[in-house]
Amino acid sequence: MRMTWSKGAAGVVTAVRDVGAVGLGAFPMGMAFGVLVVHSGLAWWWASLFSGLIYAGSLEFLLLSLVLVAAPLTTVAATAFFVNVRHVFYALSFPLDRITGRAGKAYGTFALSDEAWVVTTRTGAASWAGRRILGAQGVVHGYWAGGATLGALAGGLVPAGLGGLDFAVTALFVALALDALRARPELFTPLLALGCALFARFVVPGQLLLVAFALFTAGLLLRHAWRVRA
C-alpha cells in the first residue's frame, strides 16, 4: 500500500514538473473566471461545473455572458463550435496512440485543452508514455477547475459593486489575437474578420457571433479558391 502511495505521489510530482509554467497560468485565469461567475449572480459551484465539465477557458467566459441573457441552446452550440473548432487540428499532432485503454483515450481527448496540447507536444514530451501524458493533462485540468472554484469561493469577499471586472474577457481575447497576429503577421485575415464582425454587430446584433463566423469562413474559403485559380 505504501508502495502505491509513494508511486502515486511521485507521479503527481512528475506531472506538476512536466506541466510547468504553461499549465500553471491556467490557475489564476481560472480564479478570474470563478470571481466572474459569482459576480454574475450564480452560485459558486457553477464555476466548478463549468470549468470541470466544459474545460475550455475562452468558451466558458463567453458561455457565461450567453446564459445570463438566456441565449437559445442553438446559439450555445454554434458558439461552442466556432470557438473550439481550432481543437480539430490538435488531432494532427497529439500523441493519442501512446494512450492505452478506452477510459484513457476518452480522458485524453476530453482534456485536450490549448495548454494540454502545448505541454504534451513539446519537443521534450516526445518520449512520454501514455500515463505521463494523462498525468500532465490531469494537472492542467486541476489547475483550471481548482482556480475557478477557489475564485468563486473567494469572489464573495470581493466587493459586489466592484464594476469593470468583466473586462478580463475582452483583455483575454485581445491579447490572444495579438499572439495569433504575431504568429502570422498578415493584415488581410484580421481585417476581413473585423469587417464581418462589425457588419454583424450593426446589422444583426442579436446573431453577432453566428453571422460573423459564417461570413468570415465563407470569405476565407473564397479567398483560398481565388488564390488557387490565380
Binding site: L62, V83, A183, R184, A193, C196, A197, L220, L221
Partner: peptide, 27 residues
C-alpha cells in the same frame, strides 16, 4: 490532412476568430 483548403483554414482561423470574439466582447 492533405486538403489544401483545410490547411488554409487552419492557419488563418485563429487570428480571425479571436478578432471576432474581441468585437463580441466589446459589443
Amino acid at each position: 490532412r492533405s486538403s489544401p483548403a483545410v490547411a488554409y483554414l487552419n492557419s488563418h482561423m485563429p487570428v480571425g476568430v479571436l478578432t471576432i470574439l474581441s468585437v463580441y466582447a466589446l459589443r
